[in-house]
Design a protein around this nucleic acid. Structure first.
Lengths: 213, 213
DNA sequence: TTCTCCGTAATGTTCCCGCAATGTTGAAGC
DNA sequence: GCTTCAACATTGCGGGAACATTACGGAGAA
């Protein structure tokens, strides 16, 4: 079975390491990093499913597809809950296995998130969430918006007008120096927190966020 | 079929938005962010598979599980290659669907293990089961969903809107502060249980779960 | 029935934010 | 240098919006 499968996969330019025992599987998984693992339930030295938690515990998070003759629901559920990514009962069509392999490999390894870092400060733009040394930083809304605008243009100056647009929606009309007030309060907090960044003033133009010297 | 499925999933504390046409599906997927998408091939206005490339092109990368009566291999392969993550032929056992859902959801939530821990609280994300000091914690459905959303983003803020999406399907219309009420009740319980965690509110933004200092 | 849960609404509380008063800085001109 | 003025900084305050809390009644499940 395995050699027939190897041939079929080889035709699709997939490179395989084939082992027959749990011991060998463990060792191989430890030594190398695989794009995916095909796991048969019947191994020479035991039940293949038992391998899954072991591998996961060992920080091996390659996708695992379980191949089995026992195509019963309980087994499938058990396998999936143990940490398998997919399950195929024999007999199966090789083309489908390949399709499932592709599906499993396609999954994004990491969630892309746009995080901006300045000094010890970080800012997750998609969640509007600042953090200092990894710990979340809780800020009032307006100050948060100020910080967001400054960090998005890290190191470059932000026009006073641009800042106002970022902080206030178009309809609200501001007729005081409340923007300055927010900048001031934010500045004070960054000082007290010793955040390692400072808000500089460009007279007549706007503001600018820089790592403290 | 769909309503039976909804009921079954609801029993597992999974919140569902159910639509019947491709147009509605497109809109829903655009408007909200889903943990997973169950896609039937027979929709009122066309072939469900066609939706997959559209969604993927629209930067929607929620895992997609295709449900279908045509349990033929060609269809499965096509679906998987179009960008689906899994494929189930009808008739199917609901438990297996849930297991596959769990398998598919396991990836993005956390890399190493399925249980999230904050303070003395733990949460098994794939089974929606919270526990305190190892002992299971029984919570009403809505409070459970609130806690789940907060713990999945452990330490980071959860938008008010995101929280509402996690707790309510979009067909239920909420016109009161019931969400606040649930947060309040959950907070009280966590207090009384001395769980070592606290729900902070970020005015104008949302909430955040943190270990009590 | 009885019990739990949930949405609603009334009521209480917090704290953000715009405002304004006052202080500080810095560039320009002599 | 000194003066002057405008731009900016800082801080307290009051109103009000956002949030918290709790009781109540209906609905559904045991």
């Amino acid at each position: 079975m395995a050699s027939a499968l190897s041939d079929a996969l080889a035709k699709h330019n997939i490179v395989i390491d084939h082992v027959t025992s749990m011991a060998d599987a463990r060792e191989a998984a430890d030594m190398r990093s695989y794009d995916a693992i095909l796991l048969d339930r019947q191994l020479t030295d035991g039940e293949g499913l038992k391998l899954i938690p072991e591998l996961r515990a060992g920080n091996i998070d390659s996708p695992i597809i379980v191949l089995t003759a026992h195509n019963d629901h309980e087994g499938r559920i058990r396998g999936l809950d143990l940490g398998a990514d997919d399950y195929m009962g024999k007999p199966f069509v090789v083309e489908e296995l390949i399709a499932r392999l592709r599906a499993v490999l396609r999954r994004p390894t990491l969630l892309s998130s746009d995080v901006i870092s300045v000094g010890r400060l970080a800012f997750d733009a998609s969640h509007m969430e600042p953090s200092l040394d990894g710990k979340p930083l809780i800020l009032p809304r307006r100050e948060l918006l100020v910080l967001a605008a400054l960090m998005k243009r890290n190191g470059r100056t932000v026009t006073r007008e641009a800042l106002a647009n970022a902080v206030y929606s178009f309809d609200v009309e501001i007729q005081s120096n409340s923007l300055d007030a927010h900048v001031s309060r934010l500045r004070k907090k960054l000082m007290n927190l010793n955040a390692g960044v400072a808000i500089h003033t460009i007279r007549g133009i706007g503001y600018l966020l820089k790592v403290a010297e």
